[in-house]
Design a protein around this nucleic acid. Structure first.
Length: 405
RNA sequence: GGGGGGAUACCGAAGCGGUCAAACGGGGCAGACUGUAAAUCUGUUGGCUCAGCCUUCGGAGGUUCGAAUCCUCCUCCCCCCA
């Protein structure tokens, strides 16, 4: 009883903060918003987690959104866990089109290496309410076939088939392997293994998170809340997916991050503020409605986001670089520099440095008038133009400085 | 186990003996327009020693002057029946 009293005291019951937590960026609430509100006001210290599968070498902006939500829970004194899906990543969450290539344990661990460090930009792994880092291989690797059967008996095939990924596969007459089919079950078991009160994640994870909810209810009689977050997408739906390549990576340079955000459509400005900053949304909305140039508001968004990853000064620098390069058409301060030998042709250097893939690709760029020598302010029109020590620009965004060897 | 259908470039999808490096759509890249926006329009999207040549249509053989297209075997997938 004593410890229970202690826990009660450690949780903050700030009404405003709780409402912000319940609404900002949240797509839905399971089982209900009121359920979670009651839990938050009950004074209980809740245990919740965010699971990330280390399928790629770095976190990206999409991960930051639920991480920020996790942070809000942490700030209120709740117990938060960042779960690295080192087991689940090997299977891969089923994709709507193809069977994923299975990763090796080594690849997965390699990917996960920087995750904690990157996640600590948002949640704290230090101090008195430090976030915990867990790995789901530690329990999944111990389950045997009999355990798996017990779990599998809690979910029906019909329930599993509700997953849109599976439906799409079936519709497209593409194979679904049993190990993929079991993915939601495996991921769902995480909630049981950690015996949590809740989970946050992207809206695309709703199905998996709900499987966890079902399992926890079946096995421990516990009502797990599930908080799916809105996804950062443009009006057409899925422009920001990592497959399309324009997702902000944590490892992008500040300038790249700034530029990528500026390339978002205007319709994403408000959702961008909602999901990636703490700024009051009503003010932004008023300004947008008031006819202010969306570009300027987007610049602020880009600045705010870059600031969360780097620092105020760096964000300002990225903004200045953006203005200088794209609004005034100058050369950015920091550009990739490559060496060229005497007598080397421009295409030879570009191919060697993998700036272009082939000679014919270089030719196409020449023919399109896409390559400029910025130092001489001259368009390159000849295939065999020499590689001069100058700054070259390909298209709008790519700058290279060639230096003599 | 039986029967039928299918595997085509980054993805989807035409082609079914020569005119096929392969229509069309999406995505990518580039150009115009702009706010590096978005939308739109245009070009381009295997490689090279570039009016030509080489490699590519699941894999391996074969038929043919000639194959993505026909035949054989293999691998994989889907559907229907049991």
């Amino acid at each position: 009883m004593v410890s229970w009293f202690k826990q009660k005291k450690s949780v903050i019951l700030d009404k405003e903060k709780i409402e912000e937590l319940l609404t900002r960026g949240v797509e839905r609430h399971y089982p209900s918003e009121d359920f979670l509100r009651q839990r938050l006001f009950s004074g209980d210290r809740l245990k919740l987690y965010l699971g990330i599968d280390p399928t790629g070498p770095t976190l990206h902006l999409g991960h930051a959104i639920p991480l920020r939500k996790l942070k809000q829970f942490q700030d209120l004194g709740h117990e938060i866990i960042l779960l690295i899906g080192d087991f689940t990543a090997r299977i891969g969450d089923p994709d709507k089109k193809e069977v994923r290539k299975q990763l090796t344990r080594k690849e997965v661990l390699e990917n996960a290496k920087l995750y904690k460090e990157q996640a600590s930009l948002f949640v704290s792994f230090k101090g008195k309410n430090a976030a915990k880092l867990m790995f789901n291989n530690s329990w999944h690797s111990k389950l045997n076939f009999s355990d798996v059967l017990d779990l599998a008996s809690k979910i029906t095939v019909q329930q599993m088939l509700e997953r849109d990924m599976f439906r799409k596969r079936i519709q497209a007459e593409k194979p679904i392997y049993i190990h993929e089919f079991m993915y939601p079950l495996i991921q769902g078991y995480d909630a049981v293994a950690m015996n949590v009160d809740g989970e946050v994640g992207g809206n695309d994870q709703t199905f998996n998170m709900l499987v966890g909810r079902t399992l926890l209810k079946e096995l421990k009689g516990k009502e797990k809340f599930v908080l799916p977050m809105k996804l950062l997408v443009d009006t057409t739906g899925s422009k920001m997916g990592k497959t399309t390549g324009n997702m902000l990576s944590f490892l992008d340079s500040p300038e790249e991050k700034f530029g990528k955000i500026m390339a978002w459509t205007d319709e994403m400005i408000l959702i961008g503020f909602e999901l990636c900053t703490d700024i009051d949304l009503s003010k932004i909305k008023n300004r947008l409605d008031g006819g202010e140039n969306p570009r300027d508001i987007k610049m602020e968004l880009a600045y705010e986001i870059v600031k969360t990853y780097h620092s105020d000064i760096v964000a300002k620098g990225a903004r200045d670089a953006f203005v200088k390069t794209f609004q005034k058409g100058n050369t950015p301060n920091e550009i990739k520099s490559v060496k060229a030998g005497i007598g080397e042709k421009l295409y030879e250097v570009f191919i060697r440095e993998e700036i272009v893939n082939s000679k014919i690709e270089f030719r196409r760029l020449i023919e399109a008038g896409a390559i400029t020598n910025k130092t001489d302010n001259e368009k390159i029109t000849e295939m065999d133009a020499p590689a001069r020590p100058s700054v070259y620009k390909i298209g709008k965004h790519r700058f290279f400085e060639i230096k003599a060897m």
